[in-house]
Amino acid sequence: MSIITDPLSDPDFLRGLVDVIAVAMVAGVVGTFIVLRGVGFLGDALAHSIFPGVVIAFLADGNLLVGALVAGLVTAALMGVLTANQRVRDNTSIGVIFTAAFALGVVILANRTIEGEELEHILFGDPVGAGTLDVVLTIIIGTGVLATMFALRRLFVMSSFDPSGARAMGLPVLALDVLLLALTALTVVVAFKAVGNILVIALLITPAATARLLTDRLLPMAGLAAGLGIVASVAGLFVGYHQDTSAGGTIVLISTGLFFAAWLFAPRSGVVTLAIARRPEALRQLAPEAEAEVILASPEIQAPHAP
């Protein structure tokens, strides 16, 4: 029992635990839409774009989350301006802008000295190092993101599933795309403290991708993604605590493990599950949905109803 209870008596660990649970919930729900729309690279790009904000905040001795928040919102606003003329899914322009932001962070960093451990925390996360302000901000922002997603869920579904039909119904599809981008930016911001700038994308994408393998309904998928993210995050935090490994890295690896388990053994789509279900002996016991009748027209065969 002490494996569980010992860390819980540590207030740093407890704050980290609350932080990763909140982050995993939000990332699972937002990630569901990112995965379904196939714009995972967008989340990755957004994660890069908050890097300069984090670096500036770090060098100025400010709160990293606040720095990330400012950078994330500036980038989302910039995207909003750019997409007024161009399509959001224009991969090329997104690639240019977000890598430029990351490069900016690298250049700012170049002439400063940062302790190896500090840099490691920025890049790979430090959930146990989350302060009370970090946790409070995470919960406030996360609640806002989830509430927005829930309130506007029908609009997001309609504009993702059938954008033309949505526009014909008068929905502002472009504005909804930009809003989803902003919500993703906020998610990346709150998630970065837990798993770091580089690994943020894994928390956003991997649990949702795993959930997609397990269900083909939207709400269960969002719930499952949140649940899988929480399981991986809590487990990763405990393993990190006891083994003294990077908690962020461990969270991502556990999450990836769950993904491959689902990929192999998901009830309806798992590679192994299907291989077993599709054995000829097993298939022969099932009634087919359709049957074939072959009718050949040829001079040698007299049509039965010929006059």
Binding site: L36, R37, F161, S164, G165, M221
Partner: peptide, 18 residues
């Protein structure tokens, strides 16, 4: 807009959406 219904072309719809 509310009085108009539109049935899009096949290609405009994401058929994989759950």
């Amino acid at each position: 807009r509310r009085r108009v219904a539109y049935v899009p072309q096949r290609e405009d719809v994401d058929w994989g959406f759950p």
